[in-house]
Every structure is written in structure tokens, then in C-alpha cells.
Write a protein that binds this DNA or RNA. Sequence first.
DNA 1: AAAAGTTGCAACCGCATAGAC
DNA 2: TGTCTATGCGGTTGCAACTTT
Length: 562
Amino acid sequence: MSHMTNESEDGVLSKDQPGSPYIDEGNSGGSPGGGVILKKGPWTSAEDAILVEYVKKHGEGNWNAVQKHSGLFRCGKSCRLRWANHLRPNLKKGAFTADEERLIIELHAKMGNKWARMAAHLPGRTDNEIKNYWNTRIKRRQRAGLPLYPPEVCLQALQEGQSQNTGGINGRDNGHHDLLQTNSYEIADVIFDGLNNKQGVLPCVLELPDISASSMLMKGLGSSQYCSFVPPTMHRQKRLRESEALFSGYDDSGRNGLATFDQIQDDTYDKIARSFGLSFPYDPDPTTKNPLPFGEIQGGHSLLNGNFSASKPTFGAEKLELPSLQYPETDLGSWGRSSSPPPLLESVDAFIQSPPPTGTVQSECVSPRSSGLLDALLHQAKTMSSAKNHSSDKSSNSSTVTPGDLADSSTLNLCETEWEDYGEPISPLGHSASSIFSECTPISASGSSLDEHPPVETFPECNVKPEPVDQVWTSDGEKEISTQLDFSRPDALLGSDWFEQSTGCVKDQAIMTDAIASLLGDDFGNNYKLMGSGPSTSSQGWGFGSCAWNNMPAVCQMSELP
DNA sequence: AAAAGTTGCAACCGCATAGAC
DNA sequence: TGTCTATGCGGTTGCAACTTT
């Protein structure tokens, strides 16, 4: 959309008209004091022409000289912005393509709000354009109750992160190169997206002295972006429309599964979520209360702008980084090469192999602040795993509470408090992340698949009544997910072949199980009892897993023990 | 049909930072 | 070392277009 409404009014000062700068009456601004009054507001085509001409002659840069030499009454900053965002040659106009969208998502998962860096990967696109797109996307997805990142992105980050363990710290440098070839938004998108969003579970956010990962969680997962419910005040019709719009945003024939799944996920949400007994804003019952999702900041404008405003209170977090996987070129000394993303997992692995002395857990587990959300989650999960392992080792010998324990406890207490604060002591879902991960392989190995009913496990305390979903997803007639899937058993999904294929869960199960188990920690388990069952490695824990692995079908349910 | 509300985008501002001088 | 300039970024605003009431 253009704001060039004053085409007749050039808004430029002819070089032979010194001393009488044009000031757009409707957009007058500039500095009233001393010197030239600079024009603000929309650029006119005449101004554009002047700027283009100037750049042709003098090249880019030295923008403050533009005003002096061209007669443009625009500040250098404005000139630079105009040039960079609109006049620069080779700029790509029009809507983002599917591949570009996917790339943006992927890049954002890795970089966070590093728009310029993202733009570098998108030839012809500007940082501002990407930022606007992202903010718009966030708004749409929030309103539609969708997660910010497609699960595939999370999983890819996960896999990449883990591959770093063996592939070296440069493993992710090339992460974006194959983004455009990524064509794997498959059913997991539906399932995970749906589960994630509708469950709106983020009861627990780790709060470590180092705010990196936790802040990301606070601002990312903790925000409605990740645990988003549509505000209850939104009209259903509007939400539906927005969902349609959202879907249409991915609607592009020939596109991969991302479009397909995004297109149907709202319906799928309904089905899946209802099968979990979830209540979410689509509930037509006006009496239904939709408590704010965890992390939802009431009135938080930051949520709308999608930038996770650090200035907004987020569970007490201070000025925070965004939920990004930012890995600036600087400040990576401890991580090795500056050009590489922080080798989270290497570090964690090393950490696990060489547990720090008690009491140094947190300080030694400083999350690379430059890392992104997903990496941060990984990092935190594994860090906690290591910490827990260590502390549990110690606890076998002594009941001494270590600082690390204290941190965990406080964190978990926080979680508990937040559960209570939000008046939702019961997770809408019914399985623990740990159990999910722990069951991943066995179920797969035992042949549980989407084509068969998973064994109906007993969930003695489970409030969720399984409800068969008629059809989860159908795509081009090739991959039809069984209608018999018991979504109260997300492990059925996890154990399925497609899940294994799409997530690589089995491969990394041991690591993840351990990490998640730690996240679900024993401390937390003291307060909450896992409602699910299964050979969980941390059967008494709850909570963070389903949030940290927001895009995992971590299905948890908890109830507060007396 | 009109008013009110919403959305998307261009553009701006303030601040932080890097690099040149 | 300090200053200046360019750049990047988060946040915000204004407005036309669009949608809803």
C-alpha cells in the first residue's frame, strides 16, 4: 500500500528555490529549530526520483549529504530508509512467496528479530519488509491461535542442534541453505500446531539468573505466541475469517505440506483439542471462561507487535532478548567461532560429561544469549538434565540443597504459582513430555502406529476422555492419517512411523528423554503428579516439557496433589 | 448506506552499536 | 580516546483500504 497521496505536491525543493523548503502540510514535521525544516511523511514520486538520481550519481552512503546536494528536504536517515526499502534496485515487490515465508520462519527461529540478517538471506527483500511481515504473521497466528513456529522448524532446529553434537559447531551455519528445499511440513504440523496452540500450556518457565533461555521462554513460549489463545473477546466470525486468511496465506498450489496443514489446522485444532476436552476461544459458549493462557500478558501491546517487547513485564523478567536464536558475531568467545551459532549442545554435552561443581550449575549453564528460542530450549533442557543428574547424584548422598536445586525449586514454584494464578491447575492434555519421549521408541518398535488403535491405556486420573478423531489429515490421497488415532495418547503419534520419520525422535530419544525428564524434574514432581502413564523416565514430573517443546505433542496433565 | 472498527504497511523515532577518523 | 556517521533494530504512528455492525 502506498501512502503517496500527494503526488502533485512534490515535497521537494527545487534547487533554484533555496530557503523555501516545502513542507507537507498534512505531514509537516521536521525540526522547527534552526536550519532546514525537513519533510516527513510519505515520499512522493518526485522525491523518489531525486533520490534515485542522487544515488546514481553519488552512490549509496553519506545520506546526510543528500539533503544538501539534492534539494530533498529529508533527513539522511529517511533517505537511507527510502532507498533501502523502496528505491534500491533489485528489490522484490509483492507478497512473499511460500519459500520466502518458510525461510523467514526458519530464519527467525534461528536468528530472532535480526531483520537485516534475515534480509540478507532473502534477496530483494528488506529488513523492514520482513519485520512487517513477521509482525503481521504473528498477529494473524496469535489471533488464530496458532503457534509462531511450525513444528517442523522446531524439529529442524532440534535436529540441527543435536547434529552439532557430532557435526561440529558449524553445523548450523548452513542451516538456511536447504530451507528452500525443505518440503517436510507434514502432518506433524497439524498435530503439533494444533496441540500446541490449543492447549496453551506454559505453566512453567524457567527462570535462571541467566536470562537468555528463560527470557526467550518468557517472551517467546511464555508469550501468547507460543501458548496462544485467541482473546475471548474476539468474535468467532472474525476469528474464522482470520483463520481463513491465515490459511490462504499458505495457500499455494504446489506448495508443500506447510500450506496443506496450515490450511486445516484450525479444524484439526478443534477436533484434537476437543478430543482432549480443551476449551478454547472458539468455544461458542459465551459462558465459557477462557483464562489467559500462560504467558499471556494482559493488555500487552508487545504481543501484538510481535516483537516480544522487552519493556513489557513478562513474569518478572527484566529487559530481555527476544525469543530468538540470535547468535551475534560477537560475544561468542566461549562458544568458539564467532560466525557460528553457539554450540549449545556441544557445550551441554561437555557439561554433562563434566558436571560442574555443585553450586555452579547456573553459572555454568549460562545459555548463550545469542541463541534462539529453540536452541535455548534445548540448551536449557539439557542443562537442567545435567544439573539434575548431578544434583540427584549428590542427593543420594546428602540432602543438602544446592543452589542449583534452589533455582530449580524456585522455578518450579513459580510454575506452580502461575498455574494457580491462571486458575488452570489441570493441563488440558494428558501426558507428560517425558513419557512421550520415553515412549517414542518403544511404541514405534512395538508397532503402534497411526493405523492401529494404540492400546487403551488407563489414565486413572486422567480427566481427558479420548475421543476418536475422524480424520486428522488428508493430503493428496497419499497420506491419510488414521481416524482412529487416540489423541489422548500423543505417544501414539510419537510412536508412529510418520512421527519418527518427520522428527527423528527415535534417534535422539535418549538425549531428549533425559533432558525432558530433567525439565520435568523431581522437584516439580513433588508438587504435581503426572496424570498420564507409561514408561516415563520421569513419571512424576510435569510441565515444562510440553511448553518448552511447544511444538512437540507433549500432552501433559497434572493435578495438584494434596 | 454510513459509521465504527480493524488491518497492513510505510515511515518515523529513539536508542544502541560498529567503524572511521 | 573521543567524536561523528552510518547502520540496525524495536517500538510506534498515521493512514488508506477493508470489514463489520
